[in-house]
Design a protein around this nucleic acid. Structure first.
Lengths: 246, 246
DNA sequence: CGTAACTTTGATTAGTATCAAAAATGGTGG
DNA sequence: CCACCATTTTTGATACTAATCAAAGTTACG
């Protein structure tokens, strides 16, 4: 326990929702992996790719996206510290969307086979991984609600709340200020709006004193107001562990 | 093999993408289950519920939905013949959205435990089930693209293509005409539009001779045109089985 | 045959997109 | 430290898609 293992973010994430044993931890920490660093904008998975490794995010941010026939781009999810980016490719080998880093990021690449074996031998890890997949599905459902039924201001506010909650849970931040790695263009791609309209919407939130942004750090002036503006209820993030330990 | 087993739709669905053995089939057909029939509009899962059974759809249609703070409703997915509706609840026990029947439906209820055990003892079934979960996630991503980046006409056309493709794959229909169980109000809830606008959009498609509807049966006049109108590319449905049999 | 649910139409408005361009910001090399 | 460049943010003017409100038809159903 002298130095921190490079895969500690992944273990922390898995252990945050299920309790894992020392044996589970040892198994994870002995898994073969390759570390690397990528600049912002690097593709981790490209639509149509057939991947054989899983990518874990150790620091920084990444996002999933898909492109329409007319060239529109829709972001589908954000990922950060400890998250495994392409678990699904072990079952559906052809990627139907892309994953790119949003910022410079430290990554670990693990062979899919190694992950699958570990999940089989250490069922608690397997459960934690499937839980992660299902929480991602829940988040996707919430995004559908935002995209389909919420106003611009609600969408932006909701996204801010989501990223704040996730960063807090990931231990990236404690307080009301946290990393805001998105350009307004990217917020637009995530919320289904145009960059111009995002600009006006965010300026509205700033003028109302609800948020402020300084050099990619966002500070929430009034959390309750923002949560209300964004119709944000955190239950969909399932951050409090399974209610039954089955 | 004299009569058809009531769970045949579920087996067919699972076997359509992975090859399953006779032993797998026997295991599935001997699982404990309770059959029942529900009218349209019946809740199968209610937001906040803690469920202990999985519901399989044998005939008819169901949908998932969530409600916003202002009372808006967003549908999240449709389900039909052979699909298991609440697999995820085995890992995330508190439902974060509702599931309701769209039409009168024949259902089978299976204890979650029995499904989990079967998946453990018959790995091919386990793999087929996780594949189904991941395909659903892929469909959710495509819905996000529609909701965020496609026009009303594209959204409606895309939805028609999707339901046509799914019904064809499920063996519910062969030809260009298929069941259209949705009211325009429900199409609106699925596409993030209002019922009035859906009405105008669908009339437009009918006026252009691309579709026609008669008593809950929709006929696609020109599949290629509709697919083009809806920016529909079927890859996201992953209907052709895993490329690697790992 | 009556009633409720659904579809259709019209008129008006709100919200967001589009187009264009200016201002601010951040990073780079000299 | 400054000048320059690319990127991002901001602003303005206008167009358009889709929402809203209201009501009339139509269909399905008991």
């Amino acid at each position: 326990m002298a130095s921190i293992h490079p895969l500690a973010p992944m273990f922390d994430k898995l252990a945050s929702q299920t309790s894992l044993s020392e044996a589970d931890q040892a198994a994870l920490y002995s898994i073969p992996h390759r570390l690397s660093t990528a600049d912002g904008g690097t593709y981790l998975v490209r639509e149509g790719d057939k991947t054989e490794t899983c990518c874990v995010i150790l620091t920084g941010f990444a996002y999933r996206s898909r492109t329409t026939g007319n060239g529109g781009r829709q972001m589908l999810a954000f990922h950060m510290r400890g998250e495994v980016v392409d678990l699904q490719n072990s079952v559906i080998p052809i990627a139907d969307h892309s994953v790119q880093t949003l910022t410079r990021a430290d990554l670990a690449f693990i062979p899919q086979k190694a992950i699958i074996e570990m999940a089989a031998h250490f069922p608690a890890i397997g459960r934690a991984l499937s839980r992660q997949t299902l929480v991602e599905a829940s988040i996707a459902r919430e995004w559908m609600v935002s995209l389909g039924r919420r106003s611009a201001r609600q969408r932006v506010s909701h996204l801010i709340c989501e990223l704040a909650s996730l960063q807090k849970a990931a231990g990236i931040t404690g307080g009301p200020d946290f990393a805001w790695p998105l350009t307004q263009e990217q917020v637009a791609d995530a919320t289904g709006l145009t960059a111009v309209h995002v600009n006006r919407t965010m300026r509205g939130l700033r003028n109302d004193g609800i948020i402020s942004i300084d050099r990619h750090v966002l500070t929430i002036g009034d959390w309750d107001v923002l949560r209300c503006e964004g119709d944000f209820r955190a239950a969909y993030l399932h951050q409090h562990g399974p209610a039954n330990a089955a």
